[in-house]
Simulated scan of single mutants.
Amino acid sequence: MTKTWIRREVEIPNHMALARLEKCPELGPKLLFFSGGTALRRTSARLVNYTHNSVHVITPFDSGGSSAKLRLAFKMPAVGDIRNRLMALADQSLRGNPEIFALFAHRLPQAESQEQLRLALDQMVRGKHPLVACIHDPMRKIVRNHLAMLQQSLPEDFDLRGASIGNLVLAGGYLANRRHLDPVIFMFSNLVQVRGTVRPVVNKNLQLAAELADGTLVVGQHKMTGKETAKLASPIERLYLSDDTGRPVDQPIREKMSSLIHSAELICYPMGSFHSSVLANLLPRGVGQAVSRAACPKVYVPSTGLDPECLGLCVADQVERLGQVLMADAPGIRLSDVLHFVLVDQKHGQYPGGLDLARIRNLGVEVIDCPLIGYGHSPDIDDRFLAPILLSLA
């Protein structure tokens, strides 16, 4: 087999290519995303109409919400964003086991007592709860076994209010599989017919830490987003992986993650919380090298609207920081090895820090200015525009 480079002009969006992909999504391109949270959920759900081969590298460093309780109890990676992406890519037809989908999407009530919540969990373990009773065997046995493992391991003071059942099932599977996430992700990907690949960037219990411009040290992803605590008062100067005390940790990716990145047909750094969702995935050792070796287009899609983590940063600053994190992975990596395009909507997009397109172009990165924002008052990037553009670039 001979490999060679080609250069071609691409129409964006390429409607003819999209029509072909829609007819046979099983043979669609391998678009790889470094993400976390919910910003890419709608785009992921739309992608399955065109490709069943997208790859989603998810940050497991979330330290807020339902995931935080499980992390604290079991010293484990966060599973909430993984569950979210599995559900976005799941086949919601009868072939995809909608009963499993409904169970994973369910949360225990906030208003009930701990006694009532533990009773509901026990009913699920025994297969008596309506959400579990309707699942066919052997899937029901798998769910019950994982929930039983979780139930047996729960600390007495564990707060079940608002707990995601999907998170509890994944956590139980993690404990049942000798504290490995890949086997349980693989199992449930098959159960709900996930049309794509979802993997945490590393299978480790680590925290996200940041040094701010005013010298403050922030440990914990949830303290950076402004969702559960006050917004940052000073810009983030440095982001790194740490233990619970804020001490830096040098964490490499596994060879199979490196191979997954290397095999991508397009790499996207998508919209979302810039530091805690996008850059967080790029911090483990080996990510930058794997990205630089991947012979495919590499695209950054900056968020529109306010991102509290981007205090003091324009889009050009974000491009530089993105490149710096990836290039720091190994000597000799250039910006042109890890980033080629930046997608913006100059006419409709809201970029609070500004764009500075001239500076981006001076860095050797091509700016693609195209419609990304939907109709109405929302500043969010519309999946109806973004998915066809990314597929046309692949």
Rank of each mutant, 00 (worst) to 15 (best):
M1Y: 10
T4L: 10
I12C: 02
I12H: 01
N14S: 03
R20L: 06
E22D: 08
L27E: 15
L27W: 14
T38F: 11
L40W: 14
R41F: 07
R42L: 11
S44I: 06
R46P: 01
Y50R: 13
T51M: 03
V55H: 11
V57D: 13
D62A: 07
S63T: 15
S67N: 04
S67D: 01
R71L: 04
F74P: 09
M76C: 07
P77W: 02
I82N: 00
I82C: 04
R83H: 00
R85M: 10
L86S: 05
D91Q: 09
D91Y: 15
Q92M: 01
I100V: 03
I100C: 07
I100K: 00
E115K: 12
Q123F: 12
V125E: 00
P130W: 00
H136K: 07
K141R: 14
K141P: 11
V143Y: 04
A148V: 06
L150R: 11
Q151H: 15
P155G: 06
A163Y: 08
L168P: 02
L168F: 02
G173T: 05
L181V: 03
V184E: 03
M187N: 07
N190M: 09
Q193L: 09
A210C: 13
L212V: 03
A213V: 03
D214H: 14
L232K: 13
L241H: 03
L241I: 11
S242T: 08
R247C: 06
P248M: 06
P248E: 14
D250H: 09
S258A: 10
S263R: 01
I267Y: 00
G286W: 00
V287N: 00
S292G: 12
S292C: 14
V299T: 11
V299Q: 05
S303V: 07
P308M: 08
C310E: 00
G312W: 09
V319I: 06
P331N: 10
R334H: 14
L335C: 11
L335Y: 08
Q346M: 08
K347I: 15
Y351V: 06
V365S: 05
E366S: 13
C370D: 13
I373E: 02
P388Q: 05
A394T: 07
